Each structure stands twice: as C-alpha cells, then as structure tokens.
Amino acid sequence: MATDFTQEIKDLRSTMTSVREVTDLDALGAKIADLEAKAGAPDLWDDPESAQKVTSSLSRAIAERDRVQELDQRVDDLEVLVELGEEEGDEATLAEAERELESIRGAVGELEVRTLMSGEYDEREAVVTIRSGAGGVDAADFAEMLLRMYLRWAEKHGYPTKVLDTSYAEEAGLKSATFEVNVPYAYGNLSVEGGTHRLVRISPFDNQGRRQTSFAAVEVIPLIESTDHIEIPENEIKVDVFRSSGPGGQSVNTTDSAVRMTHIPTGIVVSMQDEKSQIQNRAAALRVLQSRLLLLRKAEEAATKKELAGDIKASWGDQMRSYVLQPYQMVKDLRTGYEVGNPQAVFDGDVDGFIEAGIRWRRSGAEASGE
C-alpha cells in the first residue's frame, strides 16, 4: 500500500510541536547564553571541577537544541522531497523519501521518549547493579548475560561505561556486578529496567538437559553529584580491605586494594575493586554509597521507594520481564506487554524497544495517578 506522506508528515509535525513545547527552546536558548558567558570567563579554569561542569552542561544544552532544530529541518526537507517525487513521478525519489521517513520516525520517537523523562533524577548518569538470584549456577550465568546485554546496549549507542565491581560465582557466571553508564539521561532510560528478570531455558549446566528457571535482580540508581550534599559521618561507615580477585585462573592483585564499605545504620554494603589503588576504590565506593543513601532519603521523604528506582531489593515474586529460550523463543515485559521473538538480539543489546515501552508505561501510570 502506498505511503500516505501527507498524513505521515502531519503526524511528525504534531509530535515535534509537543517536543518543542516540552523542551522550551526559548528557555534553553537563555540557558545556553548564560553558560556561554560563564564558559568565556577568563578565570573559568581556576576551578577545574566547576569548569568541567560548565562546559559539559553547555555541550549538552547545545546538542539538545540542535537535535530539535535539525529534526524540524529534516521534516521540512522530507516534504520538499515528496513534492518533487510526486510532481516528477520519480519512483527513485519517492523510495528515498520512504527511507528518510522511516529514519525520521525513529529519531522523532527517540526525542519524544526523552521528553517523557521528567523525574527529578532522570537527567543523571546511572549506577546499575545486577545480582544473581534463585536458580544456582544458571542464575549466576544469567546475571553475566544481563551484564553483557546492558554493556552491549551502551556500546551500540556510544555511551561510556565503567565496571566498578564484579563478584564471580564459583562454577560460572557472576554473583553480582556493578557498573556506571556515564551519559546524561542514563538513569531516566535504565531506571525502567529495575526489577526481577526471569530466564527459562534448557540448562547448559544440567547433564540431563532439563529446563531450568532462574532469576536475577537489576537495581538502577542515579549517580551522586557534589551538589546533593549527602554527608556520612565517619563513625557510620565500616571499611574492610581485601585483595581483588577474578575467576579461576585469572591473575589477582598482590595488595589489599579492594574495598568493602558498610553503612552501619542502614546495612547498605558497597564493594569496589576495579580501580588500581585502595584510595581510588574508597572514593568510588563512597560515591555509590552516597547515591544509594540519596535515593533512600528521597524515597522516605516521598514514601514511595518503588517510584524512584523500581524495587531496589527486587523480591523474587516481582518479576518484570521473562526471557524464554525453551520451549519457544520470546522476551516479554510483564508490565508493558512489549515482546519480541528474538532473545539473542536482546541479549546482544537490542533493548531500546523495552526501554521506550517502559518509559511510556511509567509516564501513563504517573498521569493516571495525577502526578
């Protein structure tokens, strides 16, 4: 069936109008002007940390403005291309317009999803922790599969990541892993991934080839910023040091550089062994601990921990997504109903559809509750 370009372009313009309203280009322009003035100050780099924040904020604001303006221009150019193709009866030009329409649809959809992220911490970078749950060695293997999935997702988008800690299981896989995604809106995107993930497959670890169900928990928290003012008295922190380790056969450090930090009042424990020195690991552990305490504090103030970070403890009864490899192949999100029939692509990092559906689902829930 021939594409109704007139209706498609009308729909794109309608969506872009909503995007511009939410983005508020006038306010964004004023923000850019203010940041440009600060960036041009002769004493800017007297305080390198502050200078880095200013230049990063300026770069992000300009990119956000340009992204909206460029998409508006692409819709205009598409309209001209369609008119040209229809006037000339040029099938090649109309085929080009079809491809450009598909590309613009995707870009506008991504931008629209970004406008749905209005939570207090959605603009933040993210800290993700994956823990194996019920299911023994299969669960540990599943946790490692999920770690690879999210790292591949970030890699596909060009998002920088940093693995902070890995705790290997005895036979295979991981007991737990923690990593950062260092890009704006990482938390807004990944926060909908928090919860309990379930894998059903023929276990490669069962010599009788039986089907096994295993679970892993995903926790997502926003990365702390220096402006958040989470002060932790030293007498509330217990610090243990130990030697970093890897899976069997892998070389290990010969110094006690890894750090385990326990917040005594809450019982929150953070382990860090990625950095080369104990000092660096202490600093990284403290930052993650502060992030968790910030989220806990906000959750207590709002009396709604689940809305801020999903279920941080990820109880095993609260499954949010199933990955089924046997007896059929399907990955289905139990909250949104979104599903795909190619689990391998998902495990290779193709999770954007699930993230977008989750963000829309979260937004519709917030609107329904009048928030």
Rank of each mutant, 00 (worst) to 15 (best):
D228S: 10
E36N: 12
V239A: 08
P247R: 03
L151T: 12
E307M: 06
D240T: 12
G310N: 12
F347A: 04
E21D: 13
T304I: 02
R105L: 05
I62P: 00
G365I: 01
I264C: 03
S176I: 10
E79L: 10
A63D: 05
V80Y: 04
K162G: 06
L111F: 11
S57R: 09
D141S: 07
R243N: 02
M272Y: 12
G29Q: 09
R105I: 05
Y328T: 11
P343V: 09
V241K: 11
L296G: 04
I32L: 05
L94P: 00
T15N: 04
E301C: 07
S226I: 13
D352F: 06
S322N: 14
T3K: 12
G188L: 08
Y159C: 02
H263Y: 14
N189C: 09
V200E: 00
E180D: 08
L190M: 13
A303S: 14
Y338L: 06
G209S: 12
D256T: 15
K10F: 13
S244V: 09
G341P: 00
F354V: 02
D66S: 11
L293I: 15
Y187G: 01
M149E: 00
W45R: 13
D66H: 02
L294I: 06
D34L: 10
R13W: 08
V82P: 03
E96M: 08
R65L: 03
A143Q: 01
I312L: 14
A172D: 03
A126T: 11
S271W: 03
L295K: 06
F354K: 06
V340K: 11
E96H: 11
K332Y: 01
L146R: 01
W316V: 15
H197N: 08
L84D: 04
F179Q: 09
V324F: 07
P222I: 11
A302M: 08
S59R: 15
A366W: 02
D26T: 14
G349N: 02
E70F: 06
V340I: 10
I130A: 04
A134W: 01
L294S: 04
V137G: 00
V163P: 00
G246S: 07
K175Q: 05
E236F: 13
T93W: 01
D43T: 12
P48W: 11
D165I: 00
W45F: 14
L223R: 14
V331F: 10
G353I: 06
I32R: 07
V68K: 03
